[in-house]
């Protein structure tokens, strides 16, 4: 009987990389989502086009192709990235494009009267966005952001194909070393599912926390 504990620790090392990628990728995606989402709603046509081009491009090609592009083609253009940097960049930009549409939709869902109230109170555009619109839109975005974060978690498995030692990569190593296929793949499937559950529950908790005191205000 093979000693599985050593192999399990190998997979857990990969799990750390997967978590790192998910956290850093999500951070980048969040920034891109707001930049591009608000960009699409900008007063300036140039900004709107730029944001639309970014969103359509990253939603139109798959994460896989983007990752390969970042890792294999960018070096020829003089930009060399480590696998981790390429992974975070591709994941963040890709999921950011999807989340940007969420940001846009949520902001458009806020009623016109809120903007009118801003004007009545003589708030600047920036103050109106920052203090009135975004805090309300955030609550609308949150559940979809949770789904996006799970998509990002699942997409991290693709980085194993550019030789980054994440969970999937380590599972493949265990497979080739032991010849056993069920143990490594069943283990990582369960781990991925557990991570997805953690994301689901923390988003739900966050949602409850942010919705506190809003009963009766929102319909």
């Amino acid at each position: 009987m093979t000693d599985w504990s050593g192999y399990l620790s190998l997979i857990l090392q990969g799990a750390v990389v997967t978590v790192q990628l998910t956290v850093m990728g999500s951070a980048l995606a969040l920034v891109m989502a707001f930049v591009a989402g608000l960009g699409r709603l900008s007063r300036f046509a140039g900004l709107r086009w730029l944001a639309t081009a970014y969103i359509e491009f990253f939603r139109g090609t798959s994460i896989f192709v983007q990752l390969f592009f970042a890792y294999f083609v960018l070096p020829f253009a003089g930009i060399s990235l480590t696998p981790l940097q390429a992974g975070v960049l591709a994941l963040g930009l890709n999921v950011g494009a999807y989340a940007a549409e969420v940001v846009r939709g949520a902001i458009l869902s806020i009623g016109k009267e809120q903007y009118e109230a801003c004007i009545a109170l003589n708030l600047s555009r920036w103050q109106c966005m920052r203090r009135i619109i975004v805090p309300q839109a955030l609550l609308v975005m949150l559940p979809t952001f949770g789904n996006n974060a799970i998509e990002l978690l699942k997409a991290t498995s693709v980085v194993s194909l550019i030789s980054l030692a994440d969970m999937t990569f380590q599972a493949n190593i265990v497979r080739s070393q032991t010849g056993n296929t069920l143990f490594p793949f069943a283990t990582i499937l369960i781990l991925y599912f557990a991570f997805a559950m953690i994301i689901t529950f923390s988003i739900r908790a966050l949602e409850r926390r942010m919705a506190r005191g809003l009963d009766g205000v929102r319909n």
Partner: peptide, 21 residues
Amino acid sequence: EFIRGTPLLVQLYFIFYVLPD
């Protein structure tokens, strides 16, 4: 729920490598 929460790539590996066993 389980299938939706886990990566497609790993599922492909599972189908391709585990089922032959």
